[in-house]
Design a protein around this nucleic acid. Structure first.
Lengths: 246, 246
DNA sequence: CGTCTTGTTGAGGCCTATCAATGAGCGTGG
DNA sequence: CCACGCTCATTGATAGGCCTCAACAAGACG
């Protein structure tokens, strides 16, 4: 079931895996735990799309016609204040599901960070499947619940943690997620997002984020071979920092 | 519907309204939209409980055996850091549902603010009902989704809003919720929680919260006849403040 | 090689946290 | 009934940390 052009680069698309069975995020995504008919029916309503870096998937306030599953790349979700202040509410990595809507309206903006591939499901069709396959609905509930729990952790971070604690938590969290994706380079994190994205995610400024990275490097807790690669040199200390135990 | 002693006093329990049909939060809670058999079965597994002020319902990390629906009073949900810093992640009012768990473990602490009544549902029993009644599962998904959207708003608040903007947003939000509960005193909000609760909810200190209330009062935006009663004198301005438009 | 974007580092000021004192409300007990 | 002590809220003074502004460095790209 190929394939849909998006962005300027439709060529990339036919390289995308076409069937759920072989999908890289098979065990993480919405489709996790489904079998046979369920998967076939899901596949019937899915469209694979690709986004080039910086491309907007949807805006807060748009009519929520679709939900998505990231299969590769990364998406930033964010909300804006009228004067341009931005809060990144999440980074969606392969396996993550996005498209939260309230009253049929998207609750945040979604933008591709790098080149990103997603599965797109029309809400209308998906709702029918939810009725037919309780397991799918349970999966959706589970993913929503997990995301809510993550949001609560983030509230603790935003409201009560210091900049170092925020950065340490962020790095460890990202590391955990990359591990779950099968990245076996333990203790090395690759940051797909910019300092400005990180700052807006942690409720800080770019300068503070940058200074904090530098400080952690100076103290020997991390190494920073490139600006987008973090090596954990003292994971224990990082974990203590993240929990405010230092 | 009087009134109930609590905590140590199981006697209170039988005084609480016994049937969902007559429940005050019938249209807000988990049970909203259910009928006949569904409601009967739900009623079969429910226990009404009462909590005195300050009483803990459960701790973060406890095994999550139950979920709850607030029927009267108010609950604060919070998370703690090892050194005692606290982040209140939400205030649960009548009609709200609580008991979020991940891997069967509660994701936050829950404490009664004032005298509070709740419906308690054993997760085990509820899960069986979810299988039998898709509508109930949809309702649960809907409530979880709404709460996730609220959490994202709160992230924006915590990460990017100034103290005045935080307080203004908080007051308006609370007002909206009280209105939905049928409080018809428009433009008057009764705060069930302390300044310290508010501070820990907004990522501020008590002093800053107090100063901000005073400032809003001085500027004529609100009135403050008692420390727990807020009168909106210029709602428009408050709304502008909340969205950072001033 | 120049330009643009992104990241890092520096200097300074403002805002909020901190520390401290006072005031208000409430229950208890004299 | 009022005095007392307790908790909670408010207000004041101070200081420290993060943001702001600014300059510089490092890549990315044509």
């Amino acid at each position: 079931m190929p394939n849909p052009p998006a962005g300027k680069n439709p060529i990339g698309e036919h390289r995308i895996v076409h069937n759920c069975e072989a999908c890289a995020v098979r065990d993480l995504a919405l489709c996790s735990g489904l079998e046979g008919n369920e998967l076939d029916d899901l596949e019937r309503i899915v469209t694979r799309i690709a986004l080039e870096p910086g491309r907007t998937l949807f805006y807060e306030g748009d009519e929520a016609r679709n939900v998505f599953n990231v299969t590769s790349g990364a998406i930033r979700l964010y909300k804006l204040l009228s004067d341009g202040r931005r809060q990144v509410t999440g980074f969606m990595l392969p396996g993550d599901y996005l498209g939260l809507s309230v009253h049929g309206i998207y609750a945040y903006c979604a933008e591709a960070i790098g080149e990103t591939h997603l599965c797109r499901f029309p809400v209308k069709d998906l709702n029918q499947l939810l009725d037919a396959y309780p397991r799918l609905e349970k999966r959706l509930l589970g993913m929503t619940r997990d995301e809510l729990a993550a949001a609560q952790d983030q509230m603790l971070l935003l409201g009560r943690k210091s900049p170092v604690e925020k950065v340490a938590s962020f790095l460890l969290d990202l590391c955990g997620r990359e591990e779950r994706l099968g990245e076996d380079e333990i203790d090395i994190v690759t940051l797909p997002m910019s300092r400005s994205d990180i700052a807006d995610y942690l409720g800080l400024t770019v300068e503070t984020v940058s200074r904090t990275f530098s400080r952690l490097k100076t103290e020997g807790v991390i190494d920073l071979p490139e600006s987008s690669r973090i090596v954990f040199k003292e994971r224990d200390k990082l974990e203590e920092l993240a929990e405010g135990m230092i």
